[in-house]
Computed example of a mutant assay.
Amino acid sequence: MQLTIEKAKTLKAKPTDESKLGFGNIFTDHMLTVVYSPEEGWHDAKIEPYHAFQMDPAGMVLHYGQTIFEGLKAYRCKDGKIRLFRPEQNFMRMNRSAERLCIPQIDVDFMVDALKKLVELEQDWVPSTPGTSLYIRPTIIASDPHLGVRASNHYIFYIILSPVGAYYATGLDPVPIYVEDNYVRAVRGGTGAAKTAANYAASLLAGEEAKKLGYSQVLWLDGVEKKYVEEVGSMNIFFRFNDEVTTPALVGSILPGITRMSVLQLAQDMGYKTTERRISIEEVFDRYDKGELLEVFGTGTAAVISPVGELKWKDRVIKIGDGTTGELSQKLYDTLTGIQYGELPDNHGWITIL
């Protein structure tokens, strides 16, 4: 498959104050698109000016939610180079999501190479202020104009780019989390392990209700027994019990996060015992009572590491630590971002330098 490039004739004004970027509000001049048909497979790959899609009102993605997406970042580093963090893992995960949603597989190597060309073209959009980055959103949508439940025959793959600041305005400050024991996000055998839009739509109501109570995110429990911890909002969740760093096992209802995978490796490098297992909410609160719960934090591409300062479950509220970012959370954040920004050695071959 050949990649063609059409440059925009008129360029947008770039942000002048990178402290006010926010997250996901600004988009660059160009995008990557590839289309799929049963006759030609994935074809017509091109980098072209950012534009709106013209979509039939009967477009299947609008009615049946057949769509998947990814999220990764490009970082401008002090040496002047731009780095990507484990992009091949994102496209490999996209193929796993595609399998669950009956979407044709993509060529991982081609997409990584095409992404590199897109970021190189848009390199002036990569912000340079510490803590900022260029957020990358690959997406696939079903495009058949058809009413009737089946897999689409035609698809659009695209990548858009957005210069961003911190995902949370509070940065690395610990956030309060509400343990949701009424609504559920996903169940085993469902789509919880796929990065698909429906999972996020299903989380909105609980998230809104938690915010009304003063909580930043929802901690989901399993969808069957409502007993075992699964995810926090759009992040994976970690607990530090004494010197054990543990996170819920991937049992089919939890997204296998790229940051999650990386944090497990880094914690091992630091000498911690790491485990992936079922963790009941009762265990979390019991071990807090025993003084064994030292830290709780979320992990994800957008926020990187998000320390948890408070957990509310039923009528109990517990405060984690002393209200500041925990020792391990800070060390993991510093190490991971240090690798991403080229300030620490990449001992695991995670970085792609443009």
Rank of each mutant, 00 (worst) to 15 (best):
residue 28 T to H: 00
residue 21 L to P: 00
residue 36 Y to L: 13
residue 21 L to Q: 05
residue 37 S to V: 01
residue 8 A to T: 08
residue 8 A to L: 08
residue 38 P to F: 08
residue 19 S to R: 15
residue 19 S to K: 11
residue 9 K to N: 12
residue 23 F to A: 13
residue 43 H to A: 08
residue 14 K to T: 09
residue 25 N to Q: 15
residue 39 E to V: 12
residue 25 N to G: 10
residue 31 M to I: 08
residue 24 G to H: 13
residue 29 D to G: 02
residue 29 D to C: 01
residue 11 L to F: 11
residue 27 F to G: 08
residue 42 W to Y: 03
residue 36 Y to F: 09
residue 16 T to Q: 14
residue 44 D to K: 05
residue 9 K to Q: 15
residue 27 F to D: 02
residue 20 K to Q: 12
residue 39 E to Y: 06
residue 15 P to D: 12
residue 40 E to S: 10
residue 43 H to W: 00
residue 16 T to N: 14
residue 39 E to T: 12
residue 9 K to R: 13
residue 42 W to G: 06
residue 23 F to C: 07
residue 43 H to S: 08
residue 31 M to D: 01
residue 44 D to T: 04
residue 39 E to R: 07
residue 24 G to M: 04
residue 30 H to I: 04
residue 17 D to E: 15
residue 11 L to Y: 13
residue 27 F to C: 07
residue 44 D to W: 00
residue 40 E to M: 07
residue 41 G to P: 15
residue 8 A to G: 03
residue 22 G to F: 02
residue 24 G to N: 09
residue 31 M to C: 05
residue 28 T to N: 09
residue 16 T to E: 13
residue 19 S to M: 10
residue 8 A to E: 05
residue 32 L to Y: 14
residue 28 T to A: 06
residue 34 V to K: 07
residue 22 G to M: 08
residue 31 M to Y: 10
residue 8 A to V: 09
residue 26 I to E: 06
residue 16 T to K: 12
residue 10 T to V: 15
residue 21 L to H: 00
residue 12 K to P: 15
residue 36 Y to N: 06
residue 32 L to P: 13
residue 44 D to E: 04
residue 25 N to I: 09
residue 28 T to L: 03
residue 21 L to T: 05
residue 26 I to G: 03
residue 19 S to I: 08
residue 23 F to R: 15
residue 13 A to G: 09
residue 40 E to C: 03
residue 36 Y to G: 04
residue 16 T to W: 14
residue 19 S to W: 02
residue 29 D to I: 00
residue 18 E to D: 11
residue 38 P to S: 07
residue 14 K to P: 02
residue 42 W to I: 01
residue 18 E to W: 02
residue 23 F to W: 11
residue 30 H to Q: 06
residue 32 L to D: 11
residue 41 G to Q: 15
residue 18 E to H: 10
residue 24 G to V: 05
residue 42 W to E: 02
residue 42 W to A: 08
residue 41 G to T: 09
residue 14 K to E: 08
residue 17 D to M: 11
residue 27 F to M: 09
residue 13 A to Y: 06
residue 17 D to N: 15
residue 16 T to F: 04
residue 39 E to G: 03
residue 40 E to F: 01
residue 8 A to W: 00
residue 17 D to G: 09
residue 10 T to A: 14
residue 8 A to K: 13
residue 18 E to P: 04
residue 33 T to Y: 01
residue 28 T to M: 03
residue 39 E to W: 09
residue 35 V to K: 11
residue 17 D to A: 10
residue 30 H to P: 01
residue 9 K to E: 12
residue 31 M to A: 07
residue 44 D to G: 01
residue 33 T to N: 00
